[in-house]
């Protein structure tokens, strides 16, 4: 376990935690983009260059901006005055999340002995990824393309402002 890993993991987790805990919504969006960027660097640490850069491009460049726009459009950038930011059933949610973490953590820790120690660094070029996308994974690729088109149109139709008096 290298020093860099600990720093990146700490940044990522701190970003995620801040996104969940902060009161101001825009701060949450900025914190979550720190978490996304930290994850991208973790991907780079795992020798997955392509996935790491795609993560930054999609999450920091697009999803974070979408979230920010949604926050401003729904006017939730100001801290709510009544009742705080947490739901009435927050305790139940916290217990469920803690239980899930306990189960996954227990599963990981109890199988530590069986996990592989070191693996040779895989040399994956972008060319190989492209050929895989156009070869064995061409059907999923096309489905994702269709899905993205449908999602774009769907998002526009859902969010479009309908005129009160249709002409």
């Amino acid at each position: 376990m290298s020093f860099v890993f600990y720093i990146l993991a700490a940044i990522t987790l701190a970003g995620g935690l801040a996104a969940v805990l902060l009161k101001n919504m825009v701060h949450c969006a900025l914190a979550v983009s720190i978490a996304f960027a930290g994850l991208a660097f973790l991907f780079l640490g795992l020798d997955a260059q392509f996935a790491g850069f795609a993560q930054i491009l999609v999450y920091v460049g697009a999803v974070a901006i979408l979230v920010v726009f949604a926050i401003l459009l729904t006017r939730s950038s100001d801290t709510p005055k009544d009742g705080g930011v947490f739901s009435r059933t927050w305790l139940a949610g916290l217990v469920v999340a803690a239980a899930v973490f306990a189960v996954i953590g227990w599963a990981v820790l109890s199988s530590v002995g069986g996990l592989p120690h070191e693996a040779a660094v895989p040399t994956v070029t972008v060319l190989q990824i492209g050929q895989a996308l156009m070869g064995p994974y061409v059907l999923p690729l096309e489905i994702v393309a269709l899905l993205l088109t449908v999602a774009t149109i769907g998002a526009v139709i859902v969010a479009i402002h309908e005129k009160e008096d249709a002409k």
């Binding site: 900025l30 983009s33 960027a37 991208a40 260059q49 392509f50 850069f53 795609a54 930054i56 491009l57 920091v60 460049g61 697009a62 974070a64 901006i65 920010v68 070029t125 972008v126």
Partner: peptide
């Protein structure tokens, strides 16, 4: 190897 992708990833972060 993925230089162009890196460039655009960095360019996208200026928006935020």
């Amino acid at each position: 190897d993925a230089g162009l992708l890196f460039y655009f990833a960095m360019g996208a972060s200026t928006e935020l």
